[in-house]
Simulated assay, not measured.
Amino acid sequence: MAKFLLSLHVLASVLFIGPVAVAVSMFPRRAAAALAGGPERAAEAGTLRLLHRITQVYALLGIAVPILGIGVAQVMDVLGQSWLIVSMVLTALSALALLLFVLPAQQAAVDALDLDTGAPEHGKAVQGLRLLPMTAGVFNLLWAVVVVLMVIRPGSTTGA
């Protein structure tokens, strides 16, 4: 049962968190191009909407990753180990970064696409993009640390 749950956990991580990480990373540059105007604005606007939708949908599907992870930890009887607790805290922090910073900034940028470039809301969306690359980087860094912790499992006696 542990191997089956672990396989599902790893598959969910790759299939659900991977697309979110890529979409979150690509969004700031595409948003800057779309909001700047110019001849490529229409194409960039479509890409921007798609990246935002990918982030939303796959973030929702990504809830399966920690749920399966907790199931694996219970079956393997490692729920109280410090590396796992740190991983769960980092996962929660990445989820908060996504919910509180990334998704609202993405939504503001998508909403600003329908506004005239001189509108105050358009200017606010452009200003909001200033921190989005950093927030995206923090989100991805947190997930990278979680993956490393899952692989090396400090203090593990399995030899991994």
Rank of each mutant, 00 (worst) to 15 (best):
M1K: 13
M1T: 15
F4Y: 14
F4L: 14
S7R: 13
V10P: 07
G18F: 12
P19H: 04
V20N: 06
A21H: 11
A23D: 10
S25N: 11
M26C: 14
R30P: 00
A31D: 05
A31F: 01
A32C: 13
L35P: 01
A36W: 10
A36V: 03
G37L: 01
A42N: 09
A42R: 09
A43L: 15
E44T: 03
A45C: 05
T47L: 12
L48R: 02
R49W: 01
L50I: 09
L50A: 12
L51V: 05
H52D: 09
H52C: 01
V57Q: 03
L60H: 12
L61V: 04
I63N: 10
I67H: 10
I70H: 10
A73Y: 00
D77N: 10
L84F: 00
S87L: 01
L90I: 08
L90F: 06
T91H: 03
A95M: 15
L96G: 14
L98Y: 07
L98W: 04
F101R: 07
V102T: 09
V102Q: 03
A105H: 01
Q106H: 06
A108N: 13
A112I: 07
L113H: 03
L115Q: 14
D116M: 00
T117D: 12
A119D: 12
A119I: 11
H122V: 07
A125C: 11
G128L: 09
L129E: 05
L129H: 09
R130Q: 15
R130H: 14
L131E: 06
L131H: 12
L132V: 04
L132I: 11
L132W: 02
A136D: 02
V138K: 07
L142V: 10
A144P: 12
V148S: 14
V151A: 15
S156W: 10
T158M: 15
T158I: 12
